[in-house]
Design a protein around this nucleic acid. Structure first.
Lengths: 252, 252
DNA sequence: CGCGGGTTTGAGCCTACTCAACAGATGTGG
DNA sequence: CCACATCTGTTGAGTAGGCTCAAACCCGCG
């Protein structure tokens, strides 16, 4: 219930030189965050909803489901993410979003988001850019799913998750939070829970991975990254911020 | 070389009630289209580029590639599509975009696109919404890839392509253009060319599909749609335009 | 006429699946 | 605080869907 010291959203954008009015606008967007327990709905599929969400703390996940039992986890969001940019064109939400851990989110109408276009276009651009990285990362994962072996897929997934955590939390450790059951990892990779388990155990036996729920440590991260030719899209974005590509362009 | 009668882009948005200045702004964006032959590059991967593209005619495709031989086709674009919304956050382009057929594209800098935010925010919203549908469709395909059998994946792919053609070209026929080799279809679905071939032949023998290069006819489209619980995201978008959800909101 | 890209088919194999059973956690209500 | 239910993890045994390898065919094109 107690108020967080400050927005994860803001700290994530702290690498940018925001103006005072921009900071205020951002803080204004995040008024009235709602607490949510793990597994609680953020957005229900099939329901008309014209809101977007800002993750303030905790993780959430987007699922595509045809029958129960056939589920795909498409996106994973954490503190500082904006959820819903890719749903702007649809009236009723296409997919289901639920909290993956407990945390808090701010819901706001698209109108309010779009209002930002006019009042703070540079801010809007930045949010858009931020959201677009997740799409690029998704395409990378799609490639992994279609063309990698199960073993490589799992490695890629863990690397990708670590990269995102690094970007969002500004902390760096090969020991990462992994608040997913093996079934859910399977849903993100197109594998069965049983096979995911075999892979996990295999990595554990070979010493590449150490588990201590709900954390895992990637003991041979570098080796994995090299073998898979892993691209960290988030760090590439961060580098761009230093020599601003997106945000600095208006001035030129 | 001769100038097309008018923009596919505009005709696609014709369902919207655009103001005269908005129409002019759109036409201005599409000045100086460049002709491109099939297979010609639109965007090279690994190269810094801050432009986006508007497809004026023809088709193009986005590929993710680790080694040559391991390729994934992620997006397929056709007349009236804007390419590059999901690359806004990255400085060097993450993926390769090439023409799938010959056609023409207009390239413009992100600056120009972002300028639209200020001069015609409603227009920008609409473009964004349009682009977001393709992302939603991609998630659907991702679900198909991870959780459907190869046979169902191919059906889903063809249905999805037909839905997009209907939306972009405003024409409706179960006979659709399919300018892809079987290898490329495999790249879009995570299958080998050999297996795609077996599936195609199977459908042909059962009478579900008729080929006449480069067209295919989906003889049992309805049956496929029902069996797969297929959702046409594009038609859902069109319906929304009639009772405007996105574009009409500013007025209220 | 030969070449190359795409298509077609066969044979055999292997990765990841299904089915089944049990062990461990976690939680919940009486 | 225990008994029971349920969800997650673990392992084995057997299977099959889609793969690899190999070779031929078709067709347009230089």
């Amino acid at each position: 219930m107690e108020r967080q010291s400050h927005s994860a959203f803001l700290s994530r954008l702290s690498r940018l030189d925001l103006t005072i009015p921009e900071r205020e606008a951002l803080e204004d967007l995040e008024r009235q965050p709602e607490e949510r327990r793990g597994r609680a709905l953020v957005f229900d599929a099939e329901r008309p909803d014209d809101r977007i969400a800002i993750m303030r703390s905790g993780w959430s996940a987007v699922r595509v489901r045809t029958d129960p039992g056939r589920t795909t986890i498409t996106q994973i969001y954490m503190a500082g993410d904006v959820i819903g940019f890719s749903d702007l064109g649809v009236g009723t939400l296409p997919h289901e979003t639920t909290m993956q851990t407990s945390g808090s989110v701010t819901l706001l109408s698209r109108t309010k988001l779009f209002a930002l276009i006019i009042t703070h276009p540079r801010l809007f651009e930045t949010l858009l850019s931020l959201a677009s990285i997740d799409t690029v990362v998704l395409l990378d994962r799609m490639h992994a799913i279609t063309r990698f072996t199960a073993e490589d897929r799992l490695q890629h997934f863990l690397l990708s998750l670590k990269a995102k955590i690094d970007h969002c939390s500004l902390q760096r450790s090969d020991r990462i939070l992994l608040p997913f059951s093996q079934k859910e990892i399977g849903d993100a990779l197109g594998l069965t829970e049983i096979y995911v388990n075999r892979l996990v155990r295999r990595f554990e036996k070979s010493g590449e991975l150490t588990r201590s729920r709900p954390y895992v440590r990637l003991n041979t991260r570098k080796a994995w990254e090299e073998r898979l030719n892993f691209r960290n899209r988030y760090s590439e974005f961060d580098e761009n911020l230093l020599k601003p590509v997106v945000s600095g362009r208006h001035g030129s």
